[in-house]
Nucleic acid binder design. Structure first.
Lengths: 366, 366
DNA sequence: CTGTTAGCGCCTTCAG
DNA sequence: CTGAAGGCGCTAACAG
């Protein structure tokens, strides 16, 4: 049963035609065409021999692979694995093989993978997940020097550009880099919607578990949330915006700090954690302190991670259709989308972690 | 800026040596060796030119890719994404690229990917996740799911064998196929341990949400659990072993049935769902019925999915080190493990969903 | 419309 | 120890 791989030339011989004809019959050459009966014969022979082309050889002859690179920070994170599921589905539809890279948050590895993809002549590459902002990136620095620091981010952009110039498709998920195609997530808008909804429920005093400094997604969500609240006349005090890691443990310990601090004062009415995983950590901290969500504090998150939909009490959040985001990014990377830039908007999902709150007594803010 | 990919011959020219020498210097030929100074020169030139080999070309010349295929049912499922994280890590250590296939539970697709891997001459392939048992094994095929036209039972095994004979490494995760290398998970033992622990806590009347008929993993967990209980003198009545899908919704609706049925009788003391995701669904059903876990029913699961560690009440479960399983499978597939078969044993984790239960009144079992 | 002929980039016998 | 030459499987100009 040892099948030496069937080659195209075997198929050609079996069908009694030349190698070239067999090739054209099988993958329909763009320029040449093949007589119907010959094509039939070739296809028939291929089927009989269970022929299937060698991707490496095709890649070499065509100068282009059939691979789609997907780069994520951590495939075990449900945020990324859901995006990956969308990418996998869309890639299969497009007849592409997806090669996965889980960088474990190392931007060096991220860069290495982009370069590998170029070298390997991948058809396209998708980068999911934000990178940290360059330090001290204060917006519009007048004049913009020819080389403004930030070695790593700049290198990534350069690598991506090189990849694109070499004919590869690129799509980013989450946040833009240069002018590259991107599926943006309306983080600020979603968080603002959430803030308004919560304000509408009667909440007035908020705290935010804001993720780490320099984390763009976290910053956008925080800004959207606090911005909307400020407009509504319930500004969040700077002290109530806590920096912490973007993880479950980050949420847990930041909430712990909040609670400890509250011993000397009082807890905010509601704590917004900038992602669901952090929110769940925060809820655990509340429980571990012997307090209750939502009786002592309400909690809200962001993303609507599917696996977390059944936590109790149900977590109020902003639903992002992550799998669709993955599919969209694939279309984009393959150049099959109309535009080169899409924004996916989230939808506020109110659950039991933030029940309506009867109007506070006006004197409450003493 | 348009870098035409750097080739080995450019490096050779730059270093002033022949192509062959450059090749030997860079990837250390097994038979020939290269003079130290020449090697240095080549490596230096390669670095200067930022050379990196073209995987397709190497694959063609060597007749073997540098790719590791990973086939899972659904990459969005935390069970699989955690395994994938382990595989990704181990693969990177081994200098391999992982190509991901998410079959969405289609065994036809699974088969297709194995064949693709062979054609593509992947270095190795890892199949995670159980396949359904061959029909007729279960006997009582009452109202099971409609079979989605599974291919010939032996087809997958044949494809895997062909892949292996063609020089590829194979590893399965979860359950064996033929004599192929496998990382087995001690499902029955883990479930038995869990049963004993729960019995030790004082529980006596159990029900099992057992997953679908023919699902081997589910069946093993169910058998381990009920077997241990029978030995302990608290057998589970067949009626209390409920067939249902292996999903959150499966757990939810089966638990709903149990509750509905209990209106006319009583609830079991503890419900064991054969995986955490189902258990969480079951807990949701309990809540939605206005009941409480653990006051009205205790609930236990299996896997210890990381994202679910903070559900409330904390879910008692059997911890399987999924990421390690992925790493192990990679070692196995690469032939780097001692043995060709490993069993990973889980560890019972008791949490608040199954508090100790005071000895029931003897008359309770009327 | 079909067949012949170069390579794609690299590895690996073979000579030198 | 090093260089030259052949070929992996396939595609894409070229003839015919």
């Amino acid at each position: 049963m040892s099948d030496a791989p069937v080659t195209l030339s075997q198929v050609a011989r079996e069908a009694g035609v030349s190698l070239a004809t067999a090739s054209r019959a099988i993958n329909g050459s763009a320029t040449r065409s093949v007589r119907e009966d010959l094509r039939e014969r070739v296809l028939e022979a291929a089927r009989r021999l269970a022929y299937s082309p060698d991707p490496s050889a095709q890649a070499m002859a065509r100068g282009r692979t059939t691979a789609l690179g997907l780069v994520v920070h951590d495939i075990a994170d449900p945020y990324f694995s859901t995006i990956a599921a969308g990418v996998a589905r869309a890639a299969e539809r497009a007849g592409l093989i997806v090669t996965l890279a889980s960088t474990e948050h190392s931007s060096a590895r991220e860069l290495a993978f982009v370069e590998l993809a170029r070298r390997q002549r991948s058809r396209a590459i998708i980068l999911a997940g934000g990178r940290l902002e360059p330090e001290g990136d204060a917006g519009v620095a007048s004049g913009g020097g020819p080389d403004d620091g930030a070695p790593v981010p700049g290198a990534l952009e350069a690598a991506l550009n090189a990849f694109q110039e070499a004919g590869g498709g690129v799509a980013l998920v989450g946040q833009p880099i240069g002018g590259l195609p991107v599926v943006e997530i309306a983080n600020a808008d979603g968080a603002a919607d959430l803030a308004r909804a919560l304000h509408g429920l009667g909440y007035r005093r908020f705290a935010v578990l804001a993720g780490p400094d320099g984390h763009r997604t976290a910053a956008d969500r925080t800004a959207g949330f606090t911005g909307a609240l400020a407009e509504l006349g319930s500004p969040v005090a700077p002290d109530d915006v806590l920096t912490c890691p973007f993880t479950r443990d980050g949420g847990y310990s930041a909430m712990g700090d909040l609670i400890k601090r509250a011993d000397a004062g009082r807890l905010p009415e509601l704590v917004f954690a900038v992602n669901d995983v952090m929110a769940v950590g925060a809820m655990a901290a509340v429980r571990d302190a012997g307090l209750s969500v939502p009786d002592d504090v309400a909690v809200a998150g962001f993303d609507d991670i599917h696996t977390l939909r059944d936590v109790s009490p149900g977590l109020t959040t902003v639903r992002i259709p992550l799998a669709e985001v993955g599919e969209l990014a694939t279309e984009l990377a393959l150049g099959r989308a109309e535009r080169t830039r899409t924004t996916v908007r989230g939808e506020v999902v109110l659950r039991d972690s933030t029940p309506p709150r009867p109007p506070a007594t006006p004197a409450d803010d003493a």
